[in-house]
Design a protein around this nucleic acid. Sequence first.
DNA 1: GTCTATAAGTGGATAGAC
DNA 2: GTCTATCCACTTATAGAC
Lengths: 192, 192
Amino acid sequence: MKISKKQQILDSALSLFSTKGIDATSTASIAKAAQVATGTLFHHFPNKQRLVHQLYLAIKHDLSLQFTPLQTQDTNELEPLAKSLWNNALDWAIQYPQKLKFFQLASVSQLLSVQEQADAMAQELGVIMQLITKGQQSGDFAPHPIELVALNCQAQYLSASNFYIDNPALTNDQHYRDASFCMFWNALRPLS
Amino acid sequence: MKISKKQQILDSALSLFSTKGIDATSTASIAKAAQVATGTLFHHFPNKQRLVHQLYLAIKHDLSLQFTPLQTQDTNELEPLAKSLWNNALDWAIQYPQKLKFFQLASVSQLLSVQEQADAMAQELGVIMQLITKGQQSGDFAPHPIELVALNCQAQYLSASNFYIDNPALTNDQHYRDASFCMFWNALRPLS
DNA sequence: GTCTATAAGTGGATAGAC
DNA sequence: GTCTATCCACTTATAGAC
C-alpha cells in the first residue's frame, strides 16, 4: 500500500471540504470517499475539528515551501525577488486550487482561533514578514503598520489566486499576470 | 409590535450566522433566538437557503446605500471622492461587523452561485465600477482588466474592515486609516 | 400568522470484534 | 489498524390546531 489510510482520509477531506464546505461535509462522507470505515477515521483523528486543524497546518506548510528556495537569492533588488515570490505563490494556487479554497474557508470560518491562525502565519510565512520589514527600512515600501500590510498582502494574493482559478484560460496571460503584480507591488510603495 | 416577526428572524439569523457560521446554525436556534416557533420561520421562508439568500441581498443593498449619497459630488477630483467612499464603507463595516462577517461567509461558501454574486455586485456596486472606469480613462488609474481591479478592491476592503473589527482601539487612528487608504489607492495607480 | 407536535432523516462519535 | 454495527442528539421541514 503506497498511501497510508490516514493520508487518504486527508486527501478526501480536502477534496470534499473545498467543494462542499467544511460544515457541510460529514465525517461519514469523508470516510466513504477515502474508502475507509468511519471507525478508522476516528482512530486517526480524535474528532472532526482536529482533522480540519491538521489539514490546515499541512497546507500552510506546503505553501511555505514555495518560498524557501528563494531565500538565498540576492536581496538587494527587492522588486524582482517579490515578483518571483508572487508568481510562485500564484502558480501554487493554480496547481492546487483545492488547497487554496480550503485555506480560505478555514480562515473565514470560526473553526480555527485567531491566535492559531496568527501563530501559523508567523511561523510559516516569516519570510514574507522579513521581506516587508526590509523594504520598509530601505524606503522601497511605505512605513505602514506591519500587521495591516501583511493582511493586505494576503488578501490581494487570495483575490488574484481565486481569479485565476475561476478563469483558467487566463492563467498564463502576461497582461493579467503583470496587472495583478502591479497592483500588489504598488500598494506597498510609498506615495510618490 | 414594532418589528415584524420576519424581521426578528432575519436579525437573529444574522447574529447567529456571523458568530457560529451558516451551516453550523440550525433553523431551530434561529427561531429560538427570535422568540418564534420553527413553524413561523418556515412560514416566512420556504427553506434555509432562501433565508440566507434574502439576508445576503438585504445586506448588500444596505452597503450600497453608503455610496449613493456621494454620487452627486464633483467627480473631477477623483482621489477625495475615492477617499470618502473608502471611509464610508469602512465605517459601515465597523458599525455593523456582523453584516461584514456574514457577507464574507456567504461570498466564500458555496451557498450562492458565482452568477448570483456577480449579479448582486453589478447591480448594487455599479457606482464603484463606473468610478474605476472613469479613473482609467482619465489616466489616474492603470488600465488593468476591470474584473481583476474590482476583485482586488473588494479584497482590500474586506481585509481592512476585518482589521478594524478585530482591533477596535485603532478604529479612529488616523495613521492606520491613512495607511489603509494609501495601499488601496496606490494599487489602482499606474506605474510611475 | 403563529403555534405545538412530530415526522424522517443525518450528524458526530463509540464499542467491540477481528 | 481497520472494520461493522449502533447510539442518540440534533437537523430540516411539515401537518394541523388556534
